[in-house]
């Protein structure tokens, strides 16, 4: 699509959408939202860019190899966090008592909830973008 207004508006809006997405991910444990919603918003911002400005450029931002790495790494982080508590002699995915949890209401509170939410956010954003680019472009792999 080569509409100048659309492209300009998209480019102006992109950072705001992404900041909002990151905010939703990071504040998932304090306010509504979390990894799923925030990750989708992040992914949608890249798709918006791809649709209005340039599909090729969006793929440049997020190439396949990186997508596969992020896909695998984010789930692996989740499982490994669970296995850490196993190593410490507690049950799988035990949180409090293993992971430090500073005072209530701050960003880092809640033990492994922060890293897990981040992993889910990264995973969902990456999945959304990869699904879109592959259904849209179907490159040779």
């Amino acid at each position: 699509m080569n509409d100048f207004v659309l492209q300009t508006v998209t480019q102006i809006l992109m950072p705001f959408i992404q900041v909002y997405g990151i905010f939703v991910v990071l504040n998932g444990h304090l306010s509504p939202g979390g990894g799923f919603a925030g990750g989708t918003i992040l992914g949608a911002s890249i798709i918006l860019y791809a649709l209005t400005v340039d599909v090729k450029a969006a793929e440049g931002i997020y190439p396949d190899e990186r997508a596969e790495m992020v896909e695998s790494a984010s789930v692996l982080v989740f499982v490994l966090l669970g296995l850490i508590s196993l190593m410490m002699g507690r049950n799988f995915l035990t949180n409090i008592g293993i992971f430090p949890s500073p005072e209530t209401g701050t960003l880092l509170t809640g033990g492994f909830i922060m890293p897990v939410t981040l992993a889910i956010g990264a995973k969902v954003a990456s999945t959304v973008i990869t699904l879109f680019t592959h259904l849209f472009e179907e490159k040779k792999s």
């Binding site: 984010s74 949180n95 209530t104 809640g110």
Partner: peptide, 26 residues
């Protein structure tokens, strides 16, 4: 769990295994 959002507490702590399964679905 030490966080105020109960829904997030359930999906990432009380029932984190379900969320792991759900990440696996993705």
């Amino acid at each position: 769990v030490n966080i105020p959002n109960i829904v997030t507490a359930i999906i990432t702590d009380y029932r984190a295994y379900d969320t792991l399964g759900e990440a696996t679905v993705l």
